[in-house]
C-alpha cells in the first residue's frame, strides 16, 4: 500500500505576518517556515496507519521552490520513506496545486491521498477537494477519525462539520483531508533527522509531469485589514453592564 501526503511550506503559525512595503507579498526575511500544521497531522495519520496495517510506503510531495526541500526533509524525519519536490517558481493557487498533484498521483498510483484541509497562509481550503474531482475519486474532508476496512479497499471516517460529527464510508483510492483533532503529530527525533538525510528526494517539474502550474487566481495587492483599537478597561461587573447597555447599546 502506498500513501501520498502533500506538504506545504508555510510561515510558522506563531509568526507575526508582515507585508512588503509595496503590498506585493509578505515579508519573508527572518520568518520561520514550517510544514503546514494540517499537513503534519495528515502525515502523522499516514504513519499511524502504517503502524497499524504493517506495510505501507509513505511518499511526501511538495510543489514550490528549492527551499521547500527543508519541509520535505522534516516529513522524511517524521518517518516518510521518500520525497518528491515538484519545482516551480510560480506561486500556484489551489487549482494549479491540484493539477500538479493529480499528475503525481497518476504516476505514483497511491492507495489514498491524505492532506491538510487548509493551508494556513492562503486559508483556501480547496486543493484536496479539487484533486479528488480531477482524479475522478471520492473525497472526505475535515477527517477527525480514520479507519481502513475491507482489506484497505474502503475507509470509515468521522468528519467535523458545522452541525457536528458526520460518519461516512468511502471506497479507496480517495482523497482525505485532515482536521485538527485527527491526531497530535509526533516531534521529529534526532535519529529521524539523521535517517532522513539518506532517504531519496526526487526532483520533478510541472513540465516533466506534463502539466502547467499556472494559476487562475491573480493577486493584485495585499493589505493589512483595518485594525481594531483596544477599548477601555472596566473595573467592575456593574460598570461592564452599564457600558454594554448605555454606551454600546447591545444589551
Amino acid at each position: 500500500m502506498k500513501i501520498l501526503v502533500p506538504l506545504k511550506r508555510v510561515p510558522d503559525p506563531d509568526t507575526k505576518i508582515r507585508l512588503k512595503a509595496d503590498g506585493s507579498g509578505i515579508e519573508t526575511d527572518g520568518v520561520k517556515f514550517a510544514v503546514n500544521p494540517f499537513d503534519s497531522i495528515a502525515l502523522e495519520e499516514a504513519l499511524r496507519q502504517r503502524e497499524k496495517t504493517g506495510a505501507a510506503e509513505i511518499v511526501v510531495v511538495t510543489i514550490g521552490g528549492e527551499e521547500c526541500a527543508e519541509q520535505l526533509r522534516t516529513g522524511l524525519a517524521m518517518g516518510a520513506d521518500r520525497a518528491i519536490l515538484v519545482k516551480t517558481t510560480a506561486n500556484p493557487d489551489s487549482l494549479a496545486v491540484a493539477k500538479v498533484l493529480a499528475a503525481v498521483c497518476r504516476k505514483e498510483q497511491p492507495a489514498f491521498v491524505i492532506m491538510g484541509k487548509q493551508a494556513i497562509d492562503d486559508d483556501s481550503n480547496q486543493a484536496g477537494q479539487m484533486l479528488a474531482a480531477l482524479l475522478g475519486l471520492g473525497q472526505i474532508t475535515f477527517v477527525s477519525k480514520l479507519e481502513l476496512t475491507d482489506g484497505n479497499r474502503r475507509a470509515r471516517c468521522s468528519r467535523e462539520t458545522d452541525a457536528g460529527i458526520e460518519n461516512l464510508t468511502i471506497s479507496l483510492p480517495a482523497v482525505l483531508t485532515a482536521d485538527l483533532r485527527l491526531n497530535e503529530p509526533r516531534y521529529v527525533s534526532l535519529p529521524g533527522i539523521m535517517k532522513a538525510k539518506k532517504k531519496p528526494l526526487e526532483e520533478l517539474t510541472p513540465e516533466s509531469l506534463g502539466v502547467s502550474a499556472a494559476s487562475r487566481t491573480r493577486v493584485l495587492k495585499l493589505e493589512r485589514p483595518a485594525g481594531r483599537k483596544a477599548g477601555v478597561r472596566v473595573k467592575t461587573v456593574d460598570e461592564l453592564i452599564a457600558k454594554l447597555r448605555h454606551e454600546a447599546k447591545v444589551l
Binding site: 505576518i17 494556513i120 486559508d123 487562475r216 493577486v219 493589512r224
Partner: peptide, 16 residues
C-alpha cells in the same frame, strides 16, 4: 478576500 488568519486582505481577480 481574507487570508493569513485574518491578518491580510488580498485584492484578487480570477481568470477563466
Amino acid at each position: 478576500r481574507v487570508m493569513f488568519a485574518g491578518n491580510v486582505i488580498a485584492t484578487v481577480q480570477l481568470d477563466g
